[in-house]
Simulated scan of single mutants.
Amino acid sequence: MGTVNPEIPRHQIRARYTDTTVTVHQTYSPRLGLPAAREGRFPAAWKRGRMTWIKPSFLWMMYRCGWGLKQDQETVLAVEITREGFEWALRHACLSHYTSDVHTDRDAWKRELAAAPARVQWDPERDLHLRPLEHRSLQLGLAGEASTRYADEWIVSITDATPTARAVHDLVRGGDLEGAAALLPDERPYPDVPGLLDHLRPGGAA
């Protein structure tokens, strides 16, 4: 059971962002990740036709990739994209799982999912020990038009965040949680844009 923090809504986007950009995270093998960080764009070997998942939460990404130690996930990327593109994806996304709070019925959800260029799932956020918390972390899957726009239009910069992942992991293993927390990206609640998440929050706004 995760830790409950009543001050954090169960379904809320938290991210590092500026007035015009938002940073998301992905992991790749070095053969894809290193050229992407070096060139600021994905190499030709990156497949635009595949579903690609982006995660605003650094610690959820660390949970997924095991601090960048899992095979083919050794390179941690911080991808800065336009907020305009990020919000376009959210407005055109469908929840990855059926929920009666949002969808009329399962058939309606299946039709929406098949047509949507993006999908959203909410997974438990993680603490520094990568233990699950009660509030959720946004995972945004991009396919088709959304994947192409992401690669060709939305990306502002790509940074190799692997050294940060290694440093935070070393401090956590050494018991210095305060030091580890100080190295984390400054992830804040994303601005509450009217209508942005209404169709993506199971149970309403909570």
Rank of each mutant, 00 (worst) to 15 (best):
N5W: 11
E7G: 03
E7W: 11
I8Y: 09
I8R: 13
H11G: 05
Q12I: 13
Q12D: 10
Q12H: 11
A15W: 03
A15L: 07
T20N: 12
T20W: 10
T21K: 06
V22F: 04
T23P: 01
Q26F: 05
T27C: 15
T27Q: 12
R31V: 15
L32N: 08
L32Y: 13
L34T: 14
P35H: 08
A36K: 07
R38W: 10
E39N: 14
F42N: 01
F42D: 02
P43L: 07
W46Y: 14
R48I: 12
R48W: 10
R50C: 05
T52H: 14
W53T: 07
K55R: 15
K55G: 09
P56K: 09
P56E: 12
P56N: 10
M62R: 05
R64K: 11
G66K: 08
G66D: 11
G66A: 04
G66R: 07
W67K: 10
G68F: 09
L69N: 12
K70N: 11
K70E: 13
Q71L: 13
D72V: 05
T75N: 09
T75K: 09
V76S: 06
A78C: 04
A78V: 04
E80V: 11
R83D: 01
G85Q: 01
A89M: 00
L90E: 00
H92D: 06
C94D: 02
L95H: 03
H97C: 06
Y98W: 13
Y98P: 03
S100K: 12
S100F: 10
V102T: 12
H103W: 12
H103V: 00
A108Y: 04
A108C: 06
W109Y: 06
R111S: 10
L113I: 01
L113Q: 11
A114H: 04
A116L: 02
A118T: 01
R119G: 06
R119L: 12
V120C: 02
Q121I: 12
W122Y: 05
P124Q: 07
D127A: 10
L128D: 06
L128I: 03
L128M: 11
L130K: 07
R131D: 14
P132M: 07
P132W: 09
S137P: 00
S137T: 14
L138F: 05
L138H: 03
L138A: 06
Q139C: 04
A143D: 05
A143G: 11
A146F: 00
A146L: 00
T148N: 05
T148I: 14
Y150M: 10
E153D: 15
I155F: 05
S157R: 15
D160M: 07
A161N: 12
P163E: 11
T164L: 15
A165M: 05
A165Y: 06
A167C: 01
D170G: 08
V172M: 05
V172Y: 08
V172C: 05
G174T: 02
G175Y: 09
D176C: 04
D176K: 02
L177R: 10
E178T: 14
E178S: 11
E178Q: 11
A180G: 01
A181V: 00
A181M: 02
A182V: 01
P189Y: 11
V193Y: 03
V193Q: 11
G195K: 09
L197Y: 01
H199A: 15
L200Y: 03
L200P: 02
P202S: 10
G203L: 07
G203F: 03
A205V: 12
